[in-house]
Simulated scan of single mutants.
Amino acid sequence: MAPDAELKVVAAGGKLTSVVIKAKDGTQISGALSPAADVWTSSPQTLPFGQTFTAQAFAVDREGVSTSASTTFKVRNADLVSANISPGENAVVGVGMPIVVRFSRAPSDQAAVQSALSVSSTPAVEGAWGWVSDSEVHWRPKNYWPAGTDVTVRASLGDLSIGNDQTGSTSVSRSFRIGKATVLKVGIDTHQMTVTSGGSVVRTIPITTGKERFTTRSGIKVIMSKERSRIMDSVTVDIPSGSSEAYRLKVEYAMRLTNSGEFIHAAPWSVGAQGRRNVSHGCTGMSMSNASWIYDFAKVGDPVEYTGSLKPMTLTNGYGDWNLSWKSWGKRSAAV
């Protein structure tokens, strides 16, 4: 039974004298008799999810003979909404890392859920929540995090009434730290990557990016994950098997930047083009030695700023939060 269902008890051919509906914990459902005392109707109220009630009705028939009846019923269980938070506990991430909260199902009331989320940091950092889908919300600082910031995020969902038969599952929290301020700057048109730490250039790396028809996106990307090696198959990026552009190969030192398949990785087969022209299918390739170095130096959450192409990075193709102005980001809050 739904928690907001209206209950009726009817005395066929007689009159009700009393109706009592309550749960084991004493929760009682109120209601009123009709003028003819032949129908009892519950008052508007919301019953607890998952609760079992016992209903007892007492009545007299036309001859004045008393009778009674009882039954039990259960209010259906709520649709639970749980939260998964990243970065993980005690992680050390880069200055571009957004806080990502993914929900087990789309909350029916985003504002109610957002009000149960909080971020605290030392030092204090200005930031805001922004919804990137019906079931995912990010918290992004106004500017890149200061290096060394300690952050705690809490999702206080335990027993939270969300609406539309949803309730929060359990409360969760995560604490993490912002590491050194590493920023990678990639010139798609200059074929160079400049690596900075704390604002100082530490290395310039010749690279190659996407060739014609496979243009690498301009904009701010964030390192999403790191894999020492991975198999890359062109069918996963909509290049059909058997095409002249098809490939399947093992790459080393892979760092994901987009959901659509842009990575930074070693590309020893294109060393001759690196620093000179773009020959890849959209990834950023470099020599094995440079790829090994940047893999060890960079971390998840480091921003990678691309310039030099007309193809833009988008909000949901990875952690695209930084491609929105602060004003535009604020409009994605459910509290607006």
Rank of each mutant, 00 (worst) to 15 (best):
W131A: 00
H191S: 13
T204W: 05
E252R: 15
S68Q: 08
E252K: 15
Q274D: 06
W40N: 05
T236V: 08
G31F: 09
L47K: 12
V101K: 12
V222Q: 10
S161K: 14
G261I: 08
V151Y: 01
P123L: 07
K15F: 02
V195C: 06
T216P: 11
V172E: 13
T209K: 07
I205W: 03
D165K: 13
P123I: 09
V336K: 07
G127V: 14
S121F: 05
P206W: 14
N323V: 06
T152Q: 15
P35Q: 07
L16A: 13
S328G: 08
P44G: 01
G318A: 02
V65C: 00
Q51V: 08
L80I: 07
K327S: 15
K142N: 12
V20S: 14
L324V: 04
M1T: 10
N90L: 05
C283P: 11
H265P: 06
W269G: 05
T71R: 11
T71E: 14
S270W: 03
K211W: 14
Y319N: 04
S121V: 06
T71Q: 12
E136K: 14
T54G: 09
S104R: 02
S289D: 15
T71D: 13
S260Y: 04
A116K: 10
W326E: 13
V81M: 05
D321F: 03
V75D: 00
T152W: 09
L16F: 02
P44I: 05
Y306R: 09
G330R: 07
A298V: 06
V336E: 03
E6T: 14
P312D: 08
D165G: 01
V279E: 10
T208I: 06
Y247A: 04
G50D: 04
N259G: 05
N77F: 11
W145T: 03
P107W: 00
S218Q: 10
A36M: 11
A147P: 08
P141I: 08
H138C: 00
S175K: 15
W326P: 05
T215F: 00
G158C: 01
R102P: 02
K299G: 14
K142E: 11
T182P: 07
Y319V: 00
R154Q: 15
R174Q: 14
G318R: 06
V235I: 07
G318H: 01
G282S: 11
Q51G: 04
T284I: 15
G282M: 09
N278A: 05
L157S: 09
A155W: 09
L80H: 12
Q192R: 15
N317A: 00
P35I: 02
W139Q: 10
A291K: 01
C283I: 03
S82I: 08
V100L: 03
G96W: 15
T54R: 08
V186C: 00
P146D: 10
A36C: 02
S34V: 13
T72M: 07
Q110W: 03
V336Y: 05
N143S: 00
R248H: 11
R177L: 10
A266E: 03
R102W: 10
V93H: 02
A55G: 08
L80E: 14
V60A: 02
G275E: 11
S241V: 03
V172S: 11
V186A: 01
A83G: 13
K24M: 04
A69G: 14
F73T: 00
S34A: 13
I294C: 05
P35H: 06
T41W: 01
G96M: 14
P206Y: 12
V251M: 06
T71P: 04
Q114G: 01
